[in-house]
């Protein structure tokens, strides 16, 4: 039984199709990352799951419970969803403790229980001692922690995070992301994380769902979507990629600039090949038989470097681990080590 099952969802916002025939399912405890350019419908999908938008077609299930299907529409306050919107949206008129306990049902829990839960959530998110502060006294990262604590306090069936880290600087972002993911996993929470940061998605999630124009175009494990993209454009949305001219030959081999086929086999299809920049190995010793090019630029990042190489009339980007011993103007041999991903032109 899946914790979340979205099937054939279609959402119209002021007459415009924002989500179209979208399907997604998550097993209990899985964390999914929704990846895609801005405006592709990521936030709309989250808001539909939360019940803040009413889809015009398709259905949404939480486990066995049907929450959205044609005339059925469970209102958001009955869905038990932990929703963390961009920048947290803490209630500015309430202190941190009151923010966290905001959604706990006072009819079900006693005051002591609520206080206890609030305390636990403060501890869980590393915010002990901040209960009496007001939201505007916290930094951006602390606000995000509180927003998450508030969402978890109602013991939600699913947590939806809408770019929760986008307002933070790089260092804090990594730290907070690690904390949040660890926390979600320790609670065995099913969660969806919306992000436009490719690495953030790959690092955090069990399932990556790639969105384009209101549809999920590919989903799978991070390794899957990274190493087996379904198209050159999709490849770019999970990481840097080189897209090179290539043709498929009748003997099954693929002819492209790093693998010139000398055989007499006929070309049966022309198209492109996708290579990740780290799948090309460089070698200083250039022999007569090797494929070689000229280094035109080196962008140094510390842990690795991106090397620009001119080979024939093509420009390639190659990622090499640091430390290294290459210089601009140097001639190097290139070798493609990795899967051959051929996409025929249609």
């Amino acid at each position: 039984m899946n914790a979340l099952e979205v099937s054939n969802l279609r959402v119209l916002l002021s007459g415009k199709i924002v989500l179209d025939d979208l399907s997604l399912s998550l097993a209990p405890g899985q964390i999914a990352a929704l990846l895609g350019p801005s405006g592709c419908g990521k936030t709309t999908l989250l808001r539909s799951i939360a019940g803040l938008i009413r889809p015009s077609e398709g259905q949404i299930r939480f486990g066995k419970q049907l929450v959205s299907f044609s005339s059925v529409h469970l209102p958001p306050h009955k869905r038990k969803i932990g929703y963390v919107p961009q920048e947290g949206a803490l209630f500015p008129h309430l202190n941190i403790a009151d923010n966290i306990s905001f959604g706990i049902d006072t009819a079900v829990f006693t005051k002591d229980q609520i206080r206890q839960t609030t305390k636990e959530m403060l501890a869980l998110t590393g915010m002990e001692g901040f209960g009496k502060r007001m939201p505007h006294q916290l930094s951006g990262g602390q606000q995000t922690r509180v927003a998450l604590a508030r969402a978890l306090a109602i013991k939600p069936s699913i947590v939806l995070l809408d770019e929760p880290f986008s307002a933070l600087d790089a260092e804090l972002r990594t730290e907070l992301r690690t904390d949040v993911i660890t926390l979600l996993r320790s609670q065995n929470t099913t969660a969806i994380l919306v992000t436009h940061d490719r690495e953030e998605g790959l690092v955090s999630a069990d399932v990556i769902a790639l969105m384009r124009d209101g549809k999920i175009v590919q989903s799978g494990t991070p390794e899957d979507v990274y190493s087996s993209p379904i198209s050159p454009t999709i490849a770019i949305s999970t990481g840097d990629a080189l897209v090179l001219q290539a043709s498929k030959l009748s003997d099954g081999s693929t002819d492209y600039i790093l693998n010139p086929v000398k055989s007499s086999a006929q070309s049966v299809a022309s198209g492109h090949i996708v290579i990740r920049p780290e799948e090309i190995k460089l070698n200083k010793s250039v022999t007569s038989g090797s494929i070689h090019g000229l280094i035109t630029k080196i962008d140094y990042y510390g842990h690795d470097a991106m090397v620009a190489i001119d080979i024939a009339d093509q420009h390639l980007q190659v990622r090499i681990p640091g430390p290294f011993d290459f210089n601009v103007g140097q001639s190097v041999a290139l070798e493609h080590v990795g899967p051959v991903r051929f996409f025929a032109n249609n």
Binding site: L52, H77, A151
Partner: peptide
């Protein structure tokens, strides 16, 4: 929206 998702009508 957050208030609604936290169970408030």
């Amino acid at each position: 929206e957050v208030a609604r998702s936290l169970g408030l009508n």
